[in-house]
């Protein structure tokens, strides 16, 4: 099943021109009564096509909650949030899962590779979820593994790969179905500095395209330079958005 086919039944409306992701006044809380925590306090954030946006900020500031709302994993309480014009609030559970599968690729902090599947089979999983036959999906997985420099490791189990190689497999998995939005959660936090840079170069090199956007949540200041723009979050709000140079200047002052 192609991405285009899987989108045919999803009602979308054009988002603001040139924006892949548009969030306005997004709020989200967890818990009830005295234990109620406001995780997002009216977040405004736009991500353009072809842009690599990094979300940075201290632990508990709402970065992960925001990408969860953007990816349709969590429901927002209030505000607007569209991804390529689609508003998850208007989609049923099944349609939302289907849309997410076709349009969003994920790179997780702990890779989340299935330990009993080979690297190629792991990479092929999103295609199989979309209905592609196993043989064709695994064949395509080898092509994508080649783009991340792991053509010869397709038959390896995750346990036989280094952390950097596992993350490259995870990147290949996030790309195989050609999603338009790629969401990465701390992609370099489990890696050393050199491997982290290699992974980021790869992400920027193979994942970026004019019709695609990349959102990366990170604490890792060593990779800020790879971003087109950086959104700083604090206490559930986006406090500033700018280029890495602008962010550095703000910090210098």
């Amino acid at each position: 099943m192609s991405t285009a086919t899987s989108n045919q039944n999803i009602a979308t409306r054009p988002g603001p021109v040139g924006l892949a992701v548009h969030c306005k006044g997004v709020t989200k809380h967890f818990g009830k009564g005295d234990s109620k925590v406001l995780a997002l306090r009216g977040v405004d954030l736009d991500i353009k096509y072809g842009e690599l946006m990094m979300l940075v900020g201290p632990s508990g500031c709402g970065k992960t909650t925001l990408i969860s709302v953007i990816a349709g994993i969590l429901d927002r309480d209030a505000g607007e949030c569209t991804v390529f014009g689609a508003d998850f609030a208007n989609l049923s559970g099944g349609a939302r899962t289907k849309w997410r599968g076709a349009n969003i690729g994920f790179v997780f902090q702990q890779f989340n590779l299935l330990p009993t599947l080979t690297a190629a089979e792991n990479v092929a999983v999103p295609l199989m979820i979309l209905g592609e036959g196993r043989h064709a999906a695994v064949k395509r997985a080898y092509d994508v593994l080649a783009t991340v420099g792991l053509a010869d490791r397709g038959k390896s189990l995750p346990s036989q790969l280094s952390g950097g190689q596992q993350q490259r497999v995870a990147i290949a998995r996030a790309l195989i179905h050609q999603p338009r939005l790629i969401v990465c959660d701390e992609p370099t936090s489990a890696l050393d500095a050199v491997t982290g840079h290699t992974v980021m170069r790869l992400l920027k090199g193979v994942a970026m395209a004019q019709d695609r956007a990349l959102v990366i949540v990170t604490h890792d200041a060593r990779i800020f330079g790879f971003a087109d723009r950086v959104a700083s979050m604090n206490d559930g709000s986006v406090v500033s958005v700018g280029t890495p140079a602008e962010l550095e200047a703000v910090h210098r002052h």
């Binding site: 289907k98 076709a102 989340n112 979820i129």
Partner: peptide, 8 residues
Amino acid sequence: ALKAMGAG
């Protein structure tokens, strides 16, 4: 993870 990747 499978559900996040679109497994219904």
